[in-house]
């Protein structure tokens, strides 16, 4: 069964028609990526799924149920977490408090503690800095924190908006290996990226967005080899 389905989704910001009928579907356990230029509607699509913007038309279904009237903070409870563009860690909170906020809705203290321990094993830098305010972290550390914070909610689906943005190449590779790890633990991922090559190489399926519409969709590997995608998004011959 499709885990997450978007059907003819429209979003308007005032006079701007940002999404003009996006349809896509994500299977459980896979990585779907949305690639495309600035302003193509990638972030808006994620923001609509997580309830930050209200669609003006169309449907979003999660496990077959419509998310139409569900508010952002309730969508998290259903199992969808969103790592926002620009990370937006709570700079005025400590690293540990940020992670606690990620687990805001969870009542199983033991489980939260165990998840925290595992997270700190995976990201020892965060453990070293757990009492520091998150604003003092480097960009890469903040991105790890933003991802860790979203994982603390134990999501079924993780929406990731430009996780590699502004990071050094070595950190970009690190982020993508983290993404693969998260998937290998059974979490479904919707990944928005400008780094189309890395995204398509990592994902199972890909959608190419242009001006608020899906221009192409296919298996990610096929898109990677498509002459159109190569010319428009991968900088010619790869």
């Amino acid at each position: 069964m499709k885990l997450l389905e978007l059907e003819d989704l429209h979003v308007r910001y005032g006079a701007v028609h940002a999404l003009k009928g996006i349809s896509l579907s994500v299977e459980e356990g896979e990585i779907a990526t949305l690639v495309g230029a600035n302003g193509a509607g990638k972030s808006t699509t994620l923001r609509a799924i997580s309830g930050l913007v209200r669609p003006s038309g169309g449907r979003i279904r999660f496990r077959g149920a419509s998310l139409g009237a569900v508010r952002a903070h309730e969508i998290v409870r259903l199992g969808i977490s969103h790592v926002p563009e620009g990370r937006i860690v709570f700079a005025n909170l400590t690293v540990l408090e940020n992670l606690e906020m990620g687990a805001y809705l969870r009542r199983d203290r033991g489980g939260v503690g165990a998840d925290l321990k595992r997270l700190f094993q995976r990201f020892p830098r965060l453990e070293e800095r757990r009492r520091q305010s998150a604003g003092t972290l480097s960009g890469g550390e903040q991105q790890m924190l933003a991802i860790g914070r979203a994982l603390m909610a134990r999501p079924t689906v993780l929406l990731m908006d430009e996780p590699s943005l502004g990071l050094a190449p070595i950190l970009v590779r690190e982020i993508f290996s983290v993404i693969r790890e998260i998937r290998s633990q059974g979490t479904t991922i919707v990944l928005v990226e400008q780094n189309a090559r890395m995204a398509l190489a990592t994902a199972d399926v890909g959608y190419v967005l242009e001006t608020g519409m899906v221009r192409m969709s296919d298996r990610a590997r096929a898109l990677l080899e498509s002459p159109f995608v190569q010319a428009a998004y991968l900088g010619g011959a790869g």
Binding site: G51, V76, N92, M101, G102, Y104, L105, A153
Partner: peptide
């Protein structure tokens, strides 16, 4: 107080 949208993405009402 830091960021309303980011807070709601944590499930904070």
């Amino acid at each position: 107080s830091f960021h309303r949208d980011a807070a709601s993405l944590m499930g904070i009402p």
